[in-house]
Design a protein around this nucleic acid. Structure first.
Lengths: 199, 199
DNA sequence: GCGCTTGTTGACACCGTGTCAACAAGCCGC
DNA sequence: GCGGCTTGTTGACACGGTGTCAACAAGCGC
């Protein structure tokens, strides 16, 4: 594991910053916000603690970067909804969500319920943005394109359902993927039928 | 506001404990976990900081007591599902949830997304218990009484939907109560029809 | 009033955070 | 190679929050 126990080495700012950030992502993913100190991140990167502050300012700013990384969906897997009737489009968007969330499950779920800092204004903003992206994915997939406030709110509610259901599946293990799939498709179909028209 | 700016007064342990706890509930409800220090709680109660530790041990234990208080639904309003067909029972349980969550909205929603400490094992345990209670309410209301693990998980997922929807209503204001009511009843009915039989 | 119980206090040590002047690694011109 | 410069990097410092604990005193019984 001795990556480089040598003397102090000089790295380019971008490289050093990214290295520290990757260590922070790993540590914050494993433990909560309060249980990880900037000293842990620093020693994990083989670096003085002050350097963390030098690159990221404050611990909270570092954490914001971390959850931003955790919640950023690789744009390669961004939606690509196939044409077809409502049922098949619903199927595909549910499968897309399940794939994304299961691929990097620990980090995504850990960040979504904000491993240690929900309630903070800045953290909530970053999480809300990620939820909004997912909600837009859902809306476009089922064919709603007009930007209605109530519609967005309903879509965010559905993302909340998807998140809590994924947690039951991946963290608790009390549901199978098939059950989750069925739950999310059935509810989304009825929301399109009976709830979205309200907005 | 000078409740008693007099000399140090001697209270019975239960009274003092409850007084400090009420101050902590108010402060943690207003601000997050990290933004409230034990010194704030102590000075808010007109008491030395050490006394907070004397009664509650550590700050986290105090916080656990606080969210336990916040999430405890007054047992007077506990369920009371009227007999009738599935539609009316669904209506009543949704109305019950909306009443409970709107009555003490700030504290309940603030605690559910764990105003500053989600991810912590003990905090998550308390929240999970509260969600389990609500899930049981839903299950008994719609007539499922056998204790199936998958069924409980699905009910918890639904509570997650209800929570996120209530947040859109009470915190964001992008949904009306009628829209929330419609969303939750429609989705619950389809879950009873098409999802719960999977478990 | 005296003494005892015990609720209450203030000081102490410890830890994590953020700042900052000083250091040195690496590159350039010579 | 060698001085000088830029700048990535460090360690020490001050500050604030937390938990502990011996000492204090409020109130009760005698």
């Amino acid at each position: 594991m001795s990556v480089d126990a040598g003397q102090r080495r000089r790295l380019e700012p971008d490289a050093r910053r990214e290295q520290i950030l990757s260590v922070a992502v790993r540590l914050f993913g494993e433990r909560g916000y309060a249980d990880v100190s900037t000293g842990d991140v620093a020693s994990g990167a083989g670096v003085a603690r002050g350097l963390v502050n030098h690159y990221f300012g404050t611990k909270k700013e570092l954490y914001l970067e971390v959850i931003r990384v955790m919640l950023t969906v690789p744009s390669s897997a961004l939606a690509l909804v196939p044409p077809g009737d409502l049922a098949t489009r619903t199927e595909s968007i549910v499968c897309w969500f399940l794939d994304v969330v299961s691929r990097h499950s620990t980090s995504w779920l850990g960040a979504i319920n904000a491993g240690g800092m929900a309630g903070d204004a800045d953290v909530d903003r970053v999480i809300t943005e990620a939820v909004d992206v997912a909600a837009d994915q859902v809306l476009t997939a089922v064919g709603f394109v007009e930007p209605n406030a109530a519609l967005h709110a309903m879509a965010r509610s559905y993302v909340g359902l998807a998140t809590s259901t994924a947690r039951e599946w991946l963290q608790r293990g009390d549901l199978t993927r098939a059950q989750v799939h069925n739950l999310l498709t059935a509810t989304l179909l009825t929301m399109v039928d009976r709830v979205f028209p309200d907005a």
